[in-house]
Design a protein around this nucleic acid. Structure first.
Lengths: 221, 221
DNA sequence: GTGTGCGTAGAACAGAAGTTTGACAATAGA
DNA sequence: TCTATTGTCAAACTTCTGTTCTACGCACAC
């Protein structure tokens, strides 16, 4: 027998969706929207479960009002997931004519002003402590499909796997560039992201990987 | 300039009523409810003033959604913990050969699977409910410095200011493209982000703005 | 005057959204 | 086994709600 005060899977899903929806849209969902989100095919079933949730005190409803559903515990503090965005620090700029100048102490940079909140997805599975951000200055990275003002998330590392987009310092040109990295014997092929641009071949010894690009953020707003 | 920041009596009344209503019921009122409360006889007049308030930045609306009205100032309300990332929905793809096919129902696709958590900075000050995301398919946007797989955050709008990056549908080419928008008399200059690419000049009548680009996210993982 | 833009009103409409009904399957208890 | 309960579904139904269209008065510029 099912315990009376125990919510069903669907009811939990509905509550969760409700919280979620209200938070993002500022108003409650319709029965049909709940149904779609929780894989309930019939509006009557949603209605049924909604009434259950009213009985159990989780929701309040207003008859015949569209979207007249309300969480009784409007903001259940405990249930709330800790803000899942990660904090990354913007440590400087990336300019073609200079090596990336990153202080050793990524972690020792608690300047709140330069903090960026980024979704974990942009970190490629890495820990926020391993990641830092640089703002691109100038249009020299344009063949990497990166433009002035973009923010690039890096992981500091001195080696790379084939196919990684990396920041490399080129001795011969005295510049930092962002390219896709391919090791080819003693040489390295640096492939621009822009398909019409030609790759650069350099001796591995004169090509210093400084970091791997995890993601790029561009704000136009 | 007829840009008057001054709100009419009715518009102030509407805002005031909105605040009260949302506070009391937990969801926004309908057009008719607003009309009754503010002594406006016709729903079209309420609608008219609502649109004014959207223009002046006081409200955000979701097309055709019942009660899809929201105070822009609503966000910092109350007890809310700084869950500082906003949830935006990935509603589809953007392909050169097709108009952007999503528009109306931003709120209609509350599929949690397609949710993206983005820092508020990427929303350009807009409410999450106004923003949606599309994944770019193919390399046709390359002169907009946007590549296959990038995620583009949009605000749906049919007009643009000079300098906005917009998604436009070009009748003559039957394609959607992302360009910087500049109105020049009866014609529109569409300027690629890539500086070596030439701008396109089109008749304003054959150039349909579909949305404004707020930001671009690229994950290289 | 005349025309234009703005705010207002009313009505009609299409689509959205809540409610109800009848049917069916699975389960637990008599 | 039979039956009551619970959960599910589809469809029909009614009501609600946003949108659109036409019309009208008013202020202001020409």
């Amino acid at each position: 027998m099912r315990e009376k005060n125990k919510l069903s899977e669907r009811q939990r899903a509905i509550l969760k969706f409700m919280e979620h929806y209200v938070e993002n849209f500022g108003f409650p969902p319709t029965i049909r929207e709940i149904g779609e989100a929780t894989n309930i095919k019939s509006t009557s079933v949603v209605n049924y479960n909604l009434n259950k949730l009213v009985q159990s005190g989780h929701l309040a409803r207003l008859n015949r009002k569209s979207r007249g559903i309300r969480l009784t515990s409007q903001i259940p503090v405990g249930v709330r997931e800790p803000s899942n965005s990660k904090r990354v620090y913007l440590l400087g700029e990336i300019v073609a004519g200079q090596p990336i100048a990153i202080p050793e102490d990524i972690a020792h940079h608690p300047d709140p002003e330069s903090a960026l909140d980024v979704p974990p997805a942009l970190l490629g599975g890495l820990d926020a402590a391993e990641v830092f951000a640089l703002r691109v200055k100038g249009d020299s990275m344009i063949d990497a499909m990166i433009q002035d003002g973009d923010i690039v998330l890096f992981r500091k590392q001195l080696t790379a796997q084939n196919g990684d987009m990396v920041a490399v310092w080129l001795d011969e040109r005295s510049e930092t560039t962002l390219k896709y990295f391919f090791r080819e014997g003693e040489r390295v092929r640096l492939q621009p992201a822009h398909p019409t641009m030609q790759p650069i071949m350099v001796a591995a010894a004169h090509c210093h990987v400084q970091g791997r690009v995890l993601s790029v953020i561009r704000t136009l707003g």
